[in-house]
Design a protein around this nucleic acid. Structure first.
Lengths: 217, 217
DNA sequence: TTTGCACTGTTATTATTTTAACAGTATAGA
DNA sequence: TCTATACTGTTAAAATAATAACAGTGCAAA
C-alpha cells in the first residue's frame, strides 16, 4: 500500500515557495545553523510565518517545538519533492548575454538539475565552452537532446527565432520549456511551458511605484 | 468631480496581463491589424477569452461587437494605466552578462520607462557605453540617481554584493527594486520590491515535468 | 509544580482570482 | 423581417490562495 504522499496536489504557489525555502535553507546551512524557526524563513521570503508552517504541513514535515525545523532534513525533504530522483537535464538555446548569464549562474548549483549543453548559430561560439558547458550548433539540436536525454529547454535566442526554436524543441521530445524571449510560443499540452518577459515585471514595478507616488499627492 | 478610474484596485494579476496584452498588441499592430478579438489575445497569452474580456471590463474598455477591440486604442489605454505620464527612469547595477542582456533588451522598447544609467565596479566597464547606456562607477550611485531622477533599480550584481547594493539604492531614494540575484534583500515598506530567481522557475518546471512523467507510469 | 511563554500544527475564515453562465446586440443570410 | 450566429459585457459561482484563530505542547523560570 504505497502511501507515498501525493505531492501532485500541492498548490502551485507552494511549489515555488518550496524552491525558495530551499535556497534560503542552503544559505543558512552554510552559516552553520542547524535549526530554523518559521518566522525566520518567513522574514527572508517576505511572507508570514503562518504561510511557512502551512506549506510545511502540506508536505508533511514536522518541526520541533521551541527549536524549529531541522535545516538539513527539510532541505532533503524538499529535494525528494521537487527534484527528479534520477536528475533532469536541461539545455540553453542561444548563448548570448542572457544565455551565458544563465549558464554561469545555474551550472553546478543543483546536482539534480543540470545544464548539459548549449546551442547557438554563431560559429565563434560553437565548439567552445561557457562556464564548463559545451556549445553546439543548433543543427545538432535534435541529436544532442536525444543523446543526452535532455528534458528541459531554455530559450534565449533572438526574438525572431523563438517560434522556430520552440517547435524544434517540441519535435525533439523536450518536456518543459522556459521561454525568456518576449515572443510567446505555442506548445502541445503535454509540454510544460513557462514564459517570462522581463519587461512585464518591470512594468508591474513601474505601476506600483506610480501608484505610491499618486498616493502621496 | 474627477471620476477618473481608480486603477489602484486592479488585481495584481490583471496588471501583469495588461502588460502582456500590450506586448502582444504591439506585435499585431506591426502586422497591420487594426482590430483583434478576445479569443485571439487569449490564444497568444495561453489564457481564456473570458479572462481577457474581464480584464478589459475592469479597465473600462469596450470593444466593438463582431469586430473586436481596436488595437491602437487599447494600447493607448493600457499605456495610461500602467505607464507613468512623465516617464520613469531605471538603472541597472551590475553590467555583467545579465545586466548587458537587460540593457540590450529594454533600451528603447518603452519610451515611458527608460534605462538611463548602468553601474559597475570594473574599471574596464566604467565610462563605456553598452547598447547606448553609459556605465558609471558605483561610487557615483547616489549622485547619478539623484541627478537623473531614477526611480527603479535593477540589481544584477554578484550575489555577495546584493544586500549592500539594495541598501544603497534605498538610501539613494529609489522607489522600486527588481532583484535578479538569488540573495533575498530587505527593504522598507515604501519601496516596492520584486525578486526573481531563475532557479525557482526552472525547478518549478522540473517539478511539473517530473509529475507528468510519473503520470505516464 | 505551576504558570507563562514561545513555539508548532491544524482548522476555519476571508480574500483573491478564475471560470462559468448568460444576457445583450449587430450582422449576415434565409 | 425573421433567425441563427458570433461576438461583447456583466454577474454569479467555483476554485485557489492567504490569513486568522486557536489548540496543543514542552521548556523555563518562579
Amino acid at each position: 500500500m504505497g502511501t507515498k504522499k501525493n505531492y501532485k496536489h500541492l498548490p502551485h504557489k507552494t511549489i515555488e515557495r518550496l524552491s525558495q525555502y530551499r535556497r534560503a535553507l542552503l544559505i543558512c546551512l552554510d552559516n552553520n545553523k542547524s535549526h530554523i524557526f518559521s518566522h525566520e524563513i518567513a522574514k527572508i521570503q517576505h511572507i508570514t510565518p503562518v504561510q511557512v508552517r502551512r506549506d510545511l504541513m502540506l508536505i508533511g514535515y514536522s518541526g520541533t517545538l521551541r527549536k524549529g525545523y531541522n535545516i538539513q532534513d527539510l532541505i532533503d525533504l524538499i529535494g525528494t519533492i521537487i527534484d527528479n530522483e534520477e536528475g533532469l537535464n536541461a539545455t540553453i538555446i542561444g548563448i548570448g548575454n542572457l544565455g551565458r548569464a544563465l549558464i554561469k549562474y545555474l551550472s553546478g548549483k543543483r546536482h539534480k538539475l543540470e545544464i548539459v549543453a548549449g546551442f547557438d548559430t554563431n560559429p565563434d561560439k560553437i565548439n567552445n565552452e561557457f562556464s564548463g558547458i559545451q556549445c553546439y550548433s543548433v543543427e545538432q539540436l535534435e541529436k544532442i537532446i536525444k543523446d543526452k536525454d535532455i528534458k528541459i529547454g531554455i530559450i534565449t535566442v533572438p526574438e525572431d527565432q523563438t517560434v522556430e526554436t520552440a517547435q524544434r524543441l517540441v519535435d525533439a521530445g523536450i518536456k518543459g520549456i522556459l521561454n525568456y524571449t518576449p515572443k510567446p510560443v505555442e506548445v502541445p499540452e503535454y509540454v510544460y511551458l513557462e514564459e517570462y518577459d522581463m519587461i512585464t515585471t518591470l512594468e508591474k514595478i513601474a505601476f506600483y511605484v506610480k501608484m505610491a507616488e499618486d498616493q502621496e499627492k
